[in-house]
Simulated assay, not measured.
Amino acid sequence: MLFSGRAHPALAEEVAQLLGVELTPTRAVTYANSEIYVRFEESVRGCHAFVIQAHPAPVNEWLMEQLIMIDALKRASADRITVVTPFYPYARQDKKHLGREPISARLVADLYAAAGAHRLMSVDLHAAQVQGFFDGPVDHLWALPVLSDYVMEKYASEEIVVVSPDAGRVRLADLWTDRLGAPLAIIHKRRDPDVANTVAVHEVVGEVDNKVCLLVDDMIDTAGTICQAADALKARGAAKVIAATTHPILSGPAVDRLRDSAFEEVIVTNTLPIADDVDLDKLTVLSIAPLIARAIHEVFEDGSVTSLFGGQS
């Protein structure tokens, strides 16, 4: 049985259609004091429940709604409960940088377990170690095949260089280079030693002159870093700059920055909903629903999720 929170119903409906099932009718209400109430309108006894919820802003509200749904399923005698969270909430808070800080990504995993979840499914975790925070199976799905197939088809006749926007994304960029058979470039950020209190100077390591530069990352939040990286590539002679990223958070000034940026095209998936008022001609949104639907099918049939990625997952 498939259940959807209210954060991104369009994605859940597409997954349900691909699986050939109906979303279970659910009554969800937010009361005047902001408390959430959930009740399922069909029996769930003995079922394998898949609870799909996206986590755009306000993240805490949608996380709490999903936890309440899981608790309701547990108390209604669902046999197994799989959490489907395409964008894992608090994924960037995966370790302590300073004393007296939380590890919020671990806390979220503990909350899922306490609510009654048996399994987690997510797409492109910000940090791989998050898989170890949940004491149960975690299906880490990769959006790379979805994004790269589109890039290979559209830019097949052009000379592509895969670019990592910083040192922390080099492993992701390596996967792209293997997939596309393209060379790698890295943007190194440093502070200008000759000017006090300056932002980073962007140095490009690799050959990008007259190339189509593909900037890859797992998410676009405020878009500051990736737009600065695009400017640096254009300044060093890139013919075109495109971006491919899984999670379109698009907070605050992100849309304006992308609209005014050097990007030819910004390619994302629909792990998060795009607001109706987003006006960005260069934005291409690819559906992650077929990947999630195939993974759900494999889990339900006790098949292999890893087989979806040729052993990569």
Rank of each mutant, 00 (worst) to 15 (best):
I70W: 00
C47S: 14
H55Q: 10
M69Q: 13
Q53F: 05
A49R: 01
W62R: 02
C47N: 11
L63R: 05
V44E: 00
E65A: 11
F40G: 02
I68M: 13
A54R: 07
E41A: 10
N60H: 12
E61L: 15
A72R: 00
L67K: 04
A54N: 05
A72N: 03
R39L: 04
E42I: 08
V38A: 04
V51L: 06
F40L: 06
F40N: 02
M64N: 12
Q53L: 08
M69F: 09
P58M: 07
D71H: 14
F50L: 07
R45V: 04
G46L: 07
R39N: 10
A72M: 03
I68Q: 12
A54D: 07
Q66D: 11
N60C: 06
A57M: 15
C47E: 12
H55P: 02
I52W: 09
S43C: 13
M64A: 13
S43D: 14
E42G: 09
W62T: 03
W62L: 04
L63E: 03
Q66L: 12
V38N: 03
V51P: 00
N60W: 07
E42K: 14
P56Q: 04
V44D: 00
H55C: 09
M69E: 10
V38C: 03
V44M: 04
E61H: 15
S43H: 08
V51I: 13
V38W: 01
E41Q: 14
E61N: 15
E41D: 15
D71N: 15
L63T: 05
E42P: 05
A72H: 01
S43N: 13
Y37E: 11
F40I: 03
P56G: 04
A57K: 15
H48E: 03
E41C: 11
N60R: 06
N60S: 12
I68W: 10
Q66S: 14
F40C: 05
E61D: 15
Q53E: 12
G46E: 08
E61A: 15
H55S: 07
S43L: 08
P56S: 05
E61W: 13
L63Y: 03
P58F: 07
E41I: 07
I68Y: 10
V59M: 04
